Amino acid sequence: MLIDTHSHIYSEDFNSDIDEVINHAYENGVRKIVLPNIDSSSVKKMLDLVDSYPQICFPLMGLHPTSVTEDYEEELTLVEYWLTKRKFYGIGEIGIDLYWETRFLEEQQTAFTYQLRLATKYKIPVVIHVRESFDEVYEILMMEKTADLQGVFHSFTGTKEQADKIIDLGFKLGVGGIVTFKNSGLDKVLQDVDLSHMILETDSPYLTPAPNRGKRNESANIIYIAQKVADLHQISIDEVARITTENATKLFGI
C-alpha cells in the first residue's frame, strides 16, 4: 500500500476524468491521498472530492503562501472557520515562497506563524511549502516549535545539511517526482537519509516523475517515486511502501 501525502487532484486539471484518476491510483496500490488546500477558492472542490471518496481522500486546511496578499487576514479567518466545521488531518499547504513573489514576505511570515499556532491548537501536523525560503521558514519554526508541532517539508529539494536540520526538528521530508529528475542532485542527498524520515508525494498535477515527465501528474505516478527511493537504498519497493506508509499514517492519523 502507498499513500500520496500531497496531491491537488481536486484542481480543474482533473475535471473531466477524476473518477478514472482515482481508480488508476487504486490500481497502482495507492490507497490514501492527502489533499492540501490552497485558499478560499479551492475549499469547495476539495471537500466535494473528499465527500465523494471519503475512504481515500483526506483533506487539509490552510492558506498557501502564494495566495498571501493584502487580504490574507480574511483568508486566515476562513481557515479557522473551516477548522471548526469538520475534520481536517493537518494544516496545509502553508509556508513561505520567495520564488514567485517577494513583495509580501512580511505577510507570508505572519500567516505562516499564525497557521503553525493553529496546528498546535488543534494538535494536527503542518505541511510546509518552502521555495527559496529555507532560512526564513526554519527561523520561524525554531521560534514556534513545541512538543506537539509535527509536520513535513513538502517537495524537499534541499541539501544534506538542510535535511539534517529538518530531521532534528522531528519533521519529515516530503519526497516527490524531483528525485527522479536526472540532474536534480536530490538522489545523492536522499541516499544518505534513513527512510524513517521520509514520506512520498506527487504534488499532482505538478512535478511529474520520470518516465512520464511532460505529462499531467497524478497520484498513480507515486509508484515511480517509490521505485527510485528503493533503488537509492537498495531495498525492495515493498519495503519502501511499508516504511513510508507507516510514517504517513502516524503523521496524519489516517
Rank of each mutant, 00 (worst) to 15 (best):
Ile3His: 00
Asp4Tyr: 12
Thr5Gln: 08
His6Met: 05
Ser7Thr: 09
Ser7Val: 04
Tyr10Asp: 10
Glu12Val: 13
Glu12Gln: 15
Glu12Asp: 14
Asn15Val: 07
Ser16Lys: 15
Asp17Phe: 08
Asp17Ala: 13
Ile18Lys: 12
Asp19Gln: 13
Asn23His: 14
Ala25Leu: 08
Tyr26Glu: 13
Glu27Gln: 14
Gly29Val: 07
Gly29Phe: 08
Val34Ser: 04
Pro36Asn: 09
Pro36Glu: 09
Pro36Leu: 01
Ile38Phe: 08
Ser40Arg: 14
Ser41Pro: 05
Ser42Glu: 03
Val43Glu: 09
Lys44Ser: 13
Asp48Met: 09
Asp48Pro: 05
Asp48Cys: 08
Ser52His: 07
Ser52Glu: 15
Gln55Leu: 11
Gln55Val: 05
Ile56Met: 11
Cys57Gln: 07
Cys57Glu: 06
Leu60Gln: 07
Met61Trp: 00
Met61Glu: 14
Leu63Gln: 04
Leu63Met: 04
His64Lys: 01
Pro65Lys: 08
Pro65Ala: 09
Thr66Asp: 13
Thr66Glu: 14
Glu74Phe: 11
Thr77Pro: 00
Leu78His: 06
Val79Arg: 08
Glu80Ala: 07
Glu80Met: 05
Glu80Cys: 04
Tyr81Ser: 12
Trp82His: 15
Thr84Gln: 13
Lys87His: 11
Gly90Cys: 09
Gly90Asp: 10
Gly95Glu: 06
Ile96Ala: 05
Asp97Ala: 05
Glu101Val: 12
Arg103Met: 09
Phe104Cys: 12
Leu105Phe: 02
Glu106Trp: 03
Phe112Ala: 01
Gln115Tyr: 05
Arg117Leu: 11
Leu118Asp: 06
Thr120Val: 13
Lys121Phe: 14
Tyr122Asn: 03
Val127Asp: 06
His129Asn: 10
Arg131Met: 06
Arg131Gln: 11
Arg131Ile: 01
Ser133Val: 12
Phe134Val: 08
Asp135Phe: 08
Tyr138Asn: 15
Glu144Lys: 11
Glu144Leu: 09
Glu144His: 10
Lys145Gly: 04
Ala147Tyr: 10
Leu149Ser: 03
Gln150Ser: 13
Gln150Gly: 12
Gly158Ile: 01
Gly158Gln: 02
Thr159Gly: 10
Lys160Ile: 14
Lys160Phe: 11
Lys160Glu: 12
Gln162Pro: 07
Ile166Ser: 07
Asp168Lys: 15
Asp168Ile: 02
Leu169Glu: 02
Phe171Thr: 08
Lys172Leu: 15
Leu173Glu: 01
Leu173Pro: 06
Gly176Tyr: 11
Gly177His: 05
Val179Gln: 07
Val179Asn: 02
Thr180Gly: 01
Ser184Ala: 14
Leu186Val: 05
Val189Pro: 11
Val189His: 12
Asp192Ser: 14
Asp194Ser: 13
Met198Asp: 03
Met198Phe: 00
Met198Asn: 01
Ile199Gln: 00
Leu200Asp: 04
Leu207Ala: 06
Leu207Cys: 03
Pro211Asn: 00
Lys215Thr: 14
Ser219Tyr: 03
Ala220Asn: 02
Asn221Thr: 00
Ile225Gln: 08
Ala226Met: 04
Ala226Asp: 00
Ala226Cys: 07
Gln227Pro: 03
Val229Thr: 04
Val229Asn: 06
Ala230Asp: 11
Ala230Trp: 04
Ala230Leu: 04
His233Trp: 09
Ser236Lys: 06
Asp238Thr: 12
Asp238Phe: 06
Val240Ser: 03
Val240Ala: 11
Thr244Cys: 10
Glu246Pro: 01
Asn247Glu: 10
Leu251Asn: 04
Ile254Phe: 14
Ile254Asp: 06
